[in-house]
């Protein structure tokens, strides 16, 4: 692995608590993500990992705590505001726009880069046409990067699962995010597809300098990719450290393997 280029803290999560009724989903979670880092969140099912991502991009509103992203502290925000600040994500269950082509999905990812108004769009001349072509070029760079040229005009609903995951990554990358949240990018993939996806994640981080926070269940992948790992269990923070330390942490092992009851 090349020399890691880790910068200052880009995202800081302070004392986040989230509950739905009496269900406590997240309990006093604090961690940070540094610029250029690949940060993993792991934990058994129901640990609150996806909820944590939903809090970061504004989909859930925590009862307590605050989030600081690029120096702006906030308690709540609408998801599209988080998007305009530079947070993009993919979903555990693919959330593509199924009726649209691969190209249109990726172009939709660039909607915040496009500004022309209804009038120009309706006539499709002047600024609207220029803007469309400029963004098409950017979308094509992502299509090249992910090696999905052959399916650019295909409706994504008919693509195989692995490719859909790749298109979804493409849509998130199209926004040129500062922070990319990946929710189980390798779930349900065979080992070859997993290798491809790992390569893409490393390349995104390496070439674009994108900070990545990912949730994953494949421990081999997590330990190989991550700079630091946050471990959650039942909404509580068990550990937050470099992979080697987490691997040998007794509470983490207990959470994953269980402890004998006396």
């Amino acid at each position: 692995m090349t020399e890691r280029n880790i910068g200052d803290v880009i995202l800081k999560v302070d004392n986040i608590s989230l509950s739905f009724g009496v269900m406590k989903v997240l309990d006093d979670i604090s961690f940070d993500v540094r610029q250029g880092e690949i940060r993993s969140i792991i934990g058994p099912n129901g640990a609150g990992k996806s909820s944590m991502l939903n809090v970061i991009n504004g989909f859930y509103h925590p009862q307590q705590g605050s989030i600081t992203f690029k120096g702006n502290t906030r308690k709540q925000m609408a998801p599209h505001v988080a998007a305009s600040q530079g947070i993009a994500r993919t979903f555990q269950n693919i959330a593509l726009f199924k009726g649209m082509s691969t190209l249109d999905n990726i172009m939709t990812g660039r909607n915040l880069k496009m500004k022309t108004n209804l009038f120009w769009q309706a006539l499709h001349i002047g600024p609207a046409r220029t803007e469309e072509i400029e963004n098409r070029e950017a979308a094509e760079r992502i299509i090249d990067f992910l090696d999905i040229q052959a399916i650019r005009k295909k409706p994504v609903g008919k693509l195989p699962y692995g490719l859909q995951k790749r298109v979804e990554l493409g849509r998130a990358l199209a926004a040129e995010p500062d922070l990319l949240l990946l929710d189980e990018p390798m779930a349900g993939m065979n080992s070859e597809e997993k290798e491809d996806m790992c390569r893409f994640i490393i390349d995104v981080n390496d070439e674009f300098g994108t900070t990545i926070t990912l949730i994953e269940h494949d421990m081999g992948v997590v330990m190989d990719l991550s700079d630091r790992v946050l471990v959650l269990d039942y909404g509580k923070q068990l550990a937050d450290d470099v992979p080697d330390k987490v691997r040998t942490n007794q509470t983490v092992i207990d959470a994953y393997l269980g402890v004998p009851h006396e």
Binding site: A83, K98, M100, T108, N111, L112, R171
Partner: peptide, 23 residues
């Protein structure tokens, strides 16, 4: 075929994902 149409279709196909990418 432009941005506005894609945003409409994004809302139609998956409104949550559309919102999370800034629509």
């Amino acid at each position: 075929r432009g941005r506005i149409g894609r945003n409409w279709m994004a809302i139609r196909d998956m409104d949550i994902a559309a919102e999370l990418i800034g629509v």
